[in-house]
Design a protein around this nucleic acid. Structure first.
Lengths: 210, 210
DNA sequence: GCTAAAACATAGCACCGTTATGTATTGTTG
DNA sequence: CAACAATACATAACGGTGCTATGTTTTAGC
């Protein structure tokens, strides 16, 4: 064959797009490549279209989310771990609000779905650990419960990031998740205890990136 | 003064925008006025800018939501009513998916947030009725619980409408809301009973408009 | 070293939201 | 009723957008 694409250029453009997203600059084809030594055509050789660029940015968002969740240190208390995963999810959204919005705006295709599935699977495994530990009822469907936790986390993140709820509303997380976990069979006092140890509010203040 | 604006033209443009949104046509200034007898300038005399048009469309979305919620017939069972309001909220989102997306995308500044506030307040009043009826603990903060219900409803609507979850995932509503209401003090069996009577899944099938 | 294919650079396309400018319309007022 | 003034409308243009067409350069394989 012939001249190969340089993966570094691809990463550079994605990183630059994520950075412009963070600094709230409008991302246009020309503004994206301005200041770099790549030309507008590079976007088309690497991403096919501007839509392809956005898809790649979405993918990067899921990758960062997965990395942040993978950094959560698991313990012997799976319910605490679920709380810790939830706060990691929300802190990722709070740290990269525009990236999070892009991840979940229209045009969510199969490729994104795979990235999201891996993230969800981490939740599922933790729910199953909670079942094995006798914290949740055996008849609890792990995927269903994990999905319901995701619904709560996303609803919270979405309403806070798009404006309707203030940032302090993230404090709604613990009571709602606690209600969900208790309904799954956890003993109330113990659940609240685990939630208190896993939910570190420090992670949700400020807005540095990750 | 002189020549006055015609309110009918304003409604016509909003209605047309909502219809184009529904039929997934891209809404541009020129495509919006094409076929009508109004010119492109009309958009600027009536809305100031294309952003103003979108703001008006958002407002229309909240007005429709408020109308749909107001149509829910209240009963002596406030928990059933909360379930009915939730399903009305979700059916509105399912019937006008693109309108719902516009309502909650970036730039949540409505010219009058009355419609949004009124919607939440209807939930708050119903929660307070549940407290008065002895279904919820007296120390429950009605606004907080209503907000938490909203978080669940929006999370569900958002994840379903933007693609990550299939439409059947709306069935997650009852168990999660039941968990929330039980945590607020409702007796489990009675709560599930009320939820079963208020949650009419018929409203969530199909995709006709409202 | 030649050839062919991939990547790059430039210029241009149709379209976008917006604005400038001129014209028609209409309520107020002398 | 006529003159005015202010609003609404129509048209054309402007800068910017994503994208493409068209060369030109670079590089891998024979």
């Amino acid at each position: 064959m012939v001249r190969r694409k340089d993966p570094a250029v691809r990463s550079l453009l994605i990183e630059r797009a994520a950075q412009m997203l963070r600094s709230r600059e409008p991302i246009t084809l020309r503004s994206l490549v301005a200041g770099t030594d790549v030309s507008t055509m590079a976007v088309y050789t690497y991403f096919g279209s501007m839509d392809g660029l956005w898809k790649a940015v979405r993918q990067e968002g899921f990758t960062r989310l997965a990395a942040r969740l993978a950094n959560v240190t698991m313990t012997a208390d799976p319910v605490r771990d679920l709380a810790a995963l939830s706060v990691a999810y929300l802190s990722n959204a709070a740290a990269n609000p525009d990236l999070y919005r892009v991840m979940f705006d229209a045009g969510f295709d199969l490729e994104d779905s795979e990235a999201a599935d891996e993230t969800l699977h981490l939740l599922v495994r933790t729910v199953e650990r909670a079942k094995s530990a006798g914290r949740f009822h055996p008849e609890v469907d792990a995927l269903e419960l994990a999905t319901q936790g995701w619904v709560i986390g996303h609803g919270l993140a979405s309403l806070v990031l798009t404006g309707p709820l203030p940032r302090e509303a993230l404090a709604h997380g613990p009571p709602v998740l606690t209600a969900l976990f208790i309904s799954a069979g956890d003993e109330p006092a113990r659940c609240r205890e685990s939630m208190g140890r896993g939910w570190n509010p420090e992670c949700l203040v400020g807005s540095s990136n990750g």
